[in-house]
Simulated assay, not measured.
Amino acid sequence: MAKRDYYEILGLQKNATAAEIKKAYRKKAIEFHPDKNPDDKEAEAKFKEAAGAYEILSNADKKARYDQFGHQAFDGNGGFGGGGGMNMDDIFSQFGDIFGGGFGGGFSGFGGGGGQRRTKGSNLRVRLKLTLEEIANGVEKKIKVKRKVQASGTTYKTCSTCNGAGQVMRVTNTILGRMQTASTCTACGGAGQIIDKKPADADAQGFKVKEETIPVKIPAGVVDGMQLKVSGKGNEAPGNGVSGDLLVAIEEEDHPTLQREGDNLHYDLYVSVPDAVLGSSKEIDTVTGKVRIKIEAGMQSGKILRLRGKGIPNINGYGKGDLLVHVNVWTPKTLNKTQKEFFETMKDDEHFQPKPENSDKSFFEKVKDMFS
């Protein structure tokens, strides 16, 4: 099923400001809030959908990637991406403050959910180097990370300060009447629980560091600097909190012969004067292996041969880019006596005189074509 456009979900135009995005999300969140729509599965789905859209559009970096690549920038990596990977605790943990105290930081009404706010563990960040071949074909990588997990034997008890709510309610008398506000409990950090017992080798929060190998599926067509998210594979949270996420930043390695430009690839092919004059065939690199191409007799230096579909797959699924082969005729720098004599006799030969045709584009025309 196709995902809805995030701007459409929030009722926004693509040029919406950060303030407009926040206002639109708050309106949708209040409309479909679980406290206003108890036991309404359709409202729950729309509430999550709005939260997923806001999670992307409220972050300048993620918004820029979404504007450029669409849903494919976040698919296949465990990201929220439209609310599909978010549960109600995730939403209130991340965006609870946007309701301005109108509903508090907890929720109720969906399957008997509790009233306390669940804390979220911290995220982990790693950089992953990929070859051009891996980017072109997609790959699954196994990444070793050291993450904090609850030590065996660690137990928790209800926080006596907030009685397990994770929040402390305060009533203030003002000229407008009595106003009630909620703030995160400082004793338990909003978890509603504090450590009761922990093993001697655990840290103050009851955690131990554990090395874990995590498989990460990399979709074809990712770009340098793109960040993928694997939900729940960051550091664990104390008590009944939710784990943080593993953020994987893509780093593209240089290729020895290919240069990437968006979805297209460029290859510099050098041919000798005899090959250019008489014609030949050459083997060149592509991201799917080597291919042999034909050099027609009389090939001119600067000619660009286009191999369609031999580039990088578009991350949005719009086909593949092309491989552009730039032909460069290599002029010898040193010649022996016999070779010099041959070219001396050819200087005035009519076949060696430049006679560009209308189809032979100038350098500037070729550059213009490349960028159009």
Rank of each mutant, 00 (worst) to 15 (best):
L176R: 15
F110D: 13
Q227D: 03
G225F: 05
G138R: 06
G298A: 03
I91S: 11
A151D: 12
I284H: 07
C162A: 10
Y25P: 08
I284W: 06
A73K: 00
E55S: 15
K197W: 03
M299Y: 07
T288K: 15
G138H: 04
A187S: 12
F343Y: 15
E344Q: 06
T17H: 01
G84E: 11
L228H: 02
P34F: 11
M299K: 13
A182W: 09
V291D: 12
G221S: 03
I304V: 15
G317V: 00
F47Y: 15
H266Q: 11
G113Y: 07
P256F: 05
V230W: 06
V271Q: 01
S281E: 14
Q259Y: 09
H351R: 15
F69W: 10
Q150L: 14
N137M: 06
R147F: 05
V223N: 09
T161Y: 13
F80E: 06
D224L: 00
K229G: 05
K233L: 07
K366Q: 15
A16E: 04
Y66Q: 03
P274C: 04
L228D: 00
A16V: 05
K294D: 14
G232L: 02
T331W: 06
F363T: 12
V273F: 02
G81Q: 14
K217P: 01
F92M: 15
M1H: 12
E341D: 13
T288V: 10
K146E: 11
V271H: 03
Q68P: 00
G190E: 08
C162T: 12
Y270T: 07
S122Y: 07
E261F: 10
H351M: 13
D224F: 02
D369K: 13
G112M: 07
N235M: 04
I312Q: 04
V242M: 08
